[in-house]
Simulated assay, not measured.
Amino acid sequence: MVSTSTAPSWDVRRLPRADGRVVLVTGGNAGIGYFVAEQLSATGATVVLGSRNGAKAEAAMASIRTRVPGARVRAVRLDLAGLSSLAATVASLDVACLDAVVLNAGVALDNPPRRETGDGHELMFATNHLGHFALTQRLMPLLSAAPAARVVTMGSFAAKSERLDPDDLHSRLDYRPKRTYARSKLAQMHFGLELDRRLRAVGSTVASVVVHPGGALDSLTPSRPPLPVRTTGARLRAAPAAFLVQGKHAGAWPAVRAVLDPAVRGGQLWGPRVFGLRGAPRREPVWKHLTDTSTAARLWDTSCHLTGLDLHLDHDLGTTTPGQPRSG
């Protein structure tokens, strides 16, 4: 068990400077990803928003520049559901090295029917896990070129009560939208921890950290024009919930700390301080089911098969062997 009372103090409103660093935030145009990008921009880092929608990315950048004068922020097109497009996304970064990537983007469907990508993968599993798995593999040479890069995986508190079914990762036998979403986030978290184990095994300088935002509601989130604005009525109706959960600006805090804090180590899990649902970020014990290394290793092998990518790590030099994405 890890003591959570010994973590160094951290002020979410007085972040350390990160001038010269480059960070990619997937899904940085909205929600928690937007606030990760805004908060990192205020440290002097160059922040790259990965977004499918160019107009939404432009709106997010306009908001960040309004709140952070001189912000170094730009965008690249990123479609995690289109595995064949990821090589072009990485090339468009046009950087010699990458100091961090925050794997935040995600799809959450509320109602049936079940949907698939063009590669034949269930949409939430494909976007939330497989897309990030493949993107990270393609980013590894850039991450390895940085002095001490970090891969920060944004999990979900919803994954705490779920378990993976390795024989039904695409939810063909049992599709329930909320459950499928939670399992896709659990797959992401397993990947983040397994990645760190493999990086440590080869002595890599890249670290992989897993975080979750706790309970983060739109209705408790401050408005950021020209992004969609929360109405006064919605904020008032949500006010009682603030005793238990928080807005998406606070849900970003664990990821921001995982990028910036030198005390954070690979293989750790970070989330909100109060019952894992709200408050300042703190290290917490890795959930018991996330310590199942056999499930994580099996997921890794299956993900390699489904994406057509196989990562070979060799002392800080990541090389990716591409193949063809497979349905399954």
Rank of each mutant, 00 (worst) to 15 (best):
R52A: 05
G33T: 02
Y181Q: 09
F35C: 02
V2E: 11
T117W: 03
Y175R: 09
W10D: 02
D11N: 15
V12M: 06
R235D: 01
T153Y: 08
V209N: 08
L199I: 08
Q246L: 10
G27Q: 06
R257S: 03
D110Y: 13
V23N: 03
A159F: 05
A57N: 09
A296Y: 00
L193T: 09
S3D: 15
P272Y: 11
F243C: 12
G328Q: 09
D310T: 15
V210P: 00
M1Q: 11
D94W: 11
W287P: 00
L290D: 09
R230I: 14
K160T: 11
P8D: 10
D261G: 11
A182M: 08
M140S: 12
T231R: 12
L193N: 06
G20K: 09
G28S: 06
G82K: 10
G279Y: 07
V152R: 06
D79N: 13
R278D: 02
E122M: 10
V25G: 08
P141N: 01
R138Q: 10
T231E: 04
G70C: 07
P325W: 03
R52Y: 09
V12P: 08
M1D: 12
V209I: 12
G271H: 06
L143S: 04
R273W: 00
V286I: 14
A297S: 14
R14I: 09
W287S: 12
S63A: 15
R278Q: 07
D94S: 13
G106C: 08
R198P: 00
P177R: 01
R283M: 10
D119V: 07
G267H: 10
G247C: 03
W253G: 07
L186S: 05
G266K: 01
T205G: 11
S156M: 10
L193A: 03
V256A: 12
L123R: 07
G120C: 11
T221W: 12
Q137C: 14
L40M: 07
V76C: 03
A296L: 04
A239G: 03
G27T: 06
R21Y: 07
D11Y: 13
D110F: 15
Y181E: 02
G271Y: 05
G192Q: 11
W300L: 03
G279I: 04
A187M: 02
T4I: 10
P113W: 02
L195G: 04
L311M: 04
G323E: 05
E116N: 13
R13S: 15
R257V: 08
L164K: 01
R265P: 00
G54W: 00
T89P: 09
T320G: 05
L217E: 14
L311R: 04
S41D: 06
V47K: 06
A18W: 09
A45W: 04
E122H: 11
A252H: 09
R72F: 00
S51C: 15
R72A: 15
H132G: 03
T307W: 08
G192H: 06
H190T: 05
H170T: 12
A57G: 14
F275E: 10
G203L: 07
L103A: 13
P325L: 01
V48K: 07
S92D: 15
